[in-house]
Design a protein around this nucleic acid. Structure first.
Lengths: 227, 227
DNA sequence: GTTCGATTAAAACATCCGTTTCATTTGGTC
DNA sequence: GACCAAATGAAACGGATGTTTTAATCGAAC
């Protein structure tokens, strides 16, 4: 039993049964939630036997937790933000943060992973802690640091709410897209591509902070840098 | 069996079995979701027999739909907004709208009803249509009309996104409170009372629109009207 | 080839859930 | 009091689900 376990693992698509189960579980839990998804369906999708989930994960709940943990790596860890390292101007940092956040929310690398994470966030359970700690918390603290640079004299409470205003805008397009489509029509919402949304959120936020022309101004800041 | 049976629905608390079932269902569905809640638990809470739900509502799904319909009346219809009627200044209308929205989100009249509605919005099902039509849509159109007055030259797409920026801020405190508490601590979030949040969202929005001093300005607009 | 642990396969188990059935009771009406 | 529709109560049904059990299969080490 030197190397043991992991007999083939050659092809990435037909990996270990454990991996296939995790992938199938991620999809099923994202689509139907914890209660709605069934281990039978997950095993069938993964091409594994019903007993496999108990063999590899013990029970359904543990499979769910592992699937959520896997999801937050698929969706891209938030502490690996490609923001200008340190020497960059605070305004550029904020621009980079908002752009990256909107992009990840609007067009995530793995839609199922993001969906599963958001589901867990909306209804925090036993897997919420790891997601918050490793996915959300780093981003939140990074944003707060950026805003602190921009607003050195603001008290903690208002700084917190300012961060919430930024995050609220970014999250809206993910958490409320179905409803928005019901109200304004699918095509109207689909027209809001990542670039448009990112530009708007950056501009709205910078305008609120006094670093860009207000929304609705006839022309953009003449000599201002491109947003 | 002396007094027994009280069909006339004299006392409001011990109303018809149908009403008690709806109230219990609202609570259970809000807490555990459609799949998670059980008709047995609902009937037990309502003090009714298991067959009552089928007798009054046909099946569980219809009970859920009726519970959601009931919820959106408990939470306060959005088309009965106490905004300044028509002659008021657009800025005052926006102020009134945001204040009312934040208040309803932050401290709803019926927490369970609001929770149930939000759950249905996050995962739209067969009951989403009525909630959107009678609860969300009126508010969305009202906000768009207000913003159109304030930003007469803005194209439709940017007007839409501006509305999303306002709604995103209002909804954040409801949709992400648990996560916020996990990150920043329960006490820090609890310190954000309705007044503070409403003031901040109004100020942030007006600043973005160029009608208030930017966030972080050392002092509030000297001669400006109170927010 | 044999042996042993890891993995898979198939069936059954125990439980819970939504629903139905059927008998009983209740309150009003003739 | 007799009758009837509305409502309630208790039990069971059929199905689905998570879990367990038992046996078969596979792959490498001896």
């Amino acid at each position: 039993m030197v190397v043991a376990a992991q007999p083939p693992a050659d092809t990435p698509d037909d990996a270990n049964a454990r991996e296939r189960l995790l992938a199938a579980a991620q999809e099923a839990f994202a689509e139907h939630g914890f209660k709605g998804a069934t281990v039978r369906d997950i095993c069938r999708t993964a091409g594994a036997n019903i007993a496999a989930v108990n063999y590899y994960f013990g029970d359904k709940e543990n499979l769910y937790i592992e699937a959520v943990k896997r999801a937050h790596t698929c969706a891209g860890r938030m502490d690996t933000f490609p923001v200008p390292p340190a020497g960059a101007a605070p305004l550029d940092k904020l621009r980079g943060f908002v752009r990256e956040m909107v992009t990840r929310m609007h067009a995530p690398a793995s839609p199922a992973a993001m969906k599963l994470m958001m589901r867990e966030m909306a209804d925090p359970g036993k897997a919420a802690h790891v997601v918050v700690t490793e996915f959300i918390q780093p981003a939140a603290f990074a944003l707060r640091a950026i805003l602190r640079e921009l607003l050195p004299h603001l008290d903690e409470q208002h700084l917190l709410m300012t961060g919430f205003s930024v995050m609220g805008q970014c999250l809206f397009y993910r958490q409320n897209r179905p409803v928005s489509e019901l109200i304004f029509g699918r095509e109207a919402v689909a027209a809001l591509d990542v670039e448009s949304v990112a530009d708007h959120v950056v501009r709205f936020t910078l305008a609120a902070l006094g670093h860009a022309e207000p929304i609705g101004a006839r022309a953009k800041k003449p000599g201002g840098r491109k947003v």
